[in-house]
Nucleic acid binder design. Structure first.
Lengths: 211, 211
DNA sequence: CCTGGTACCTACTCGCGAGTAAGACTACTG
DNA sequence: CAGTAGTCTTACTCGCGAGTAGGTACCAGG
């Protein structure tokens, strides 16, 4: 708890990471507009001019946050899924990785999705870019697994719906933190793979064996 | 296009509706924080003190907007679905009513969902309340249609997932306005009723006969 | 034609937050 | 022990937006 005095001298790279962490924290709690550069600098443990010297304007800082967190998340998902497995297993791994990331990085998800999507301009574009990558991933998975003659466009739109459902469920999850990640992921898996039509008949999907 | 001069004298009730319409418009375009009372008053065609005299502070005004739009939407859905039909048909009607409303009232949906959910405090509570009503509706539908021994809790959570998926798809739709409402609704219907497992086999859901 | 009440206005105050000017402290390099 | 490059600060300016004081136009009923 420092309140006064000079901050310890640190190399630029380290300071920049501290500042980014503070920024993600504050943006996620307050939103872009309500967050003030004063508060970010205080949380980061430095003074405002440092902020401007290192990360530029408020908008630049926010965009940088989005890019960093988006990259972190896509990497988490990519390392969680192995391309040679069955389609449903791949989807299952992807969902678990996704919800795992969101669960352990609520702030990241907040700033990424909730904040970025409500501020217009370049921020939403940044987010849309990430979503596009996710949709392509799922679409490829679907195309690969489809036996029926489905068009590329149809796969794309279904993938978009699934990604949307995932985003939404994560959003919902933020307000119901008591549920474990695995349960939420399994719920979505069942919903999108089996459908209500099967579920009300008692047919559920489960992962093949253990692990 | 008035730019100067006095506004026509109007009874209070009429003015209040004009102001609410303007507020929904501005809040949806700019978000709560970025929206200014000056701009709302200008769009409404009156001066700022009128705003304060009639609708109170900025926060009160925003909360009033949310309540009004939430009520409008729930009514639109309720009138669209007939309780004596088959479960899947009920769901289908509900989805069409929902996406129909969102399509014809983008601004309402923006202020309702995107804005209300990002501002904390009483706004999110207002929204959560509406979502709760929607979830109960769907949960009842599911419980009624289930033959398997599903718990109430399971129905609730599945309903939450479905409502979440709907919210999300509507959200996505805002950024892809070229799609017609019926197509988006059908997509979600297929996804949640059939599931990918069926869809990749070529099994799709369709409404029973025409209309 | 006066008298009140309601709709409506111009023209402020005041705090908050983005962004900056100008300099002070530290540490390494010769 | 200079000199210099990079870190860090205090202490501002300045505009914008929430909320208000103190009126002016307009329409009743007497």
């Amino acid at each position: 708890m420092r309140t006064e005095g000079r901050a310890k001298r640190l190399p630029r790279a380290v300071r920049e990471r501290q500042i980014m962490d503070a920024a993600v924290d504050v943006f996620s709690r307050l939103g872009f507009h309500a967050a003030s550069m004063d508060e970010i600098s205080e949380v980061a443990g430095i003074s405002k001019p440092m902020l401007y010297a290192y990360l530029g304007s408020k908008e630049e800082l926010f965009a940088t946050c989005i890019r960093r967190e988006a990259t972190r998340m896509m990497e988490a998902i990519a390392t969680g899924v192995e391309p040679e497995q069955e389609p449903d297993v791949q989807l299952w791994s992807g969902l678990r990785a996704f919800f795992g990331f969101v669960g352990e990085n609520r702030a990241s998800w907040q700033v990424l999705h909730r904040q970025a999507s409500t501020q217009g301009g370049p921020f939403a574009a940044e987010l849309a870019d990430m979503r596009g990558r996710a949709v392509s991933l799922v679409a490829a998975l679907l195309t690969q697994s489809t036996k029926a003659p489905a068009t590329k466009l149809e796969a794309e739109s279904l993938a978009a719906a699934l990604v949307g459902a995932g985003e939404s469920l994560a959003e919902w999850w933020l307000d119901h933190p008591e549920e474990p990640a695995g349960v939420v992921a399994a719920r979505l898996m069942n919903l999108v793979w089996m459908g209500f039509g099967d579920l009300v008949e008692g047919n559920v999907w489960h992962p093949p064996s253990r692990r």
